[in-house]
């Protein structure tokens, strides 16, 4: 039963971070406002979690301008995608393990 709780990625312990990674795993890039609408959370909340993921080097930020408005896009890095996949695999294993016991 001990297998895997410590294998679960600490960075994904928070729900919002896991949600952000799910979106970035399914899409090449996603912009801040669309992400905010999709997850239905506040600017500050989203920004702080994005910062945390950026610090882990799981995502990279692309800043550009649409006309005069700043447009911030996020993209998952190779490390980030790998960590996300491992996290999901671990969750899956946990289910299998619990079923067999």
């Amino acid at each position: 039963m001990k297998i895997s709780f410590d294998k679960l990625d600490k960075a994904f312990e928070n729900r919002v971070r896991l949600q952000i990674m799910s979106v970035l795993a399914a899409n090449e890039r996603y912009d801040f406002n669309s992400l905010k609408d999709l997850l239905n959370i506040t600017d500050g909340n989203l920004a702080s979690h994005l910062k945390a993921l950026e610090k882990e080097e799981y995502i990279v930020v692309h800043k550009s301008f649409l006309g005069r408005k700043p447009n911030t896009n996020y993209e998952a890095t190779v490390i980030g995608k790998k960590a996300f996949k491992e996290h999901l695999d671990t969750l899956e294993q946990l289910i299998k393990h619990q079923k067999s016991t």
Partner: peptide, 8 residues
């Protein structure tokens, strides 16, 4: 997660 990936 699956729902969010689809919805996004």
């Amino acid at each position: 997660i699956r729902g969010l990936m689809e919805r996004s």
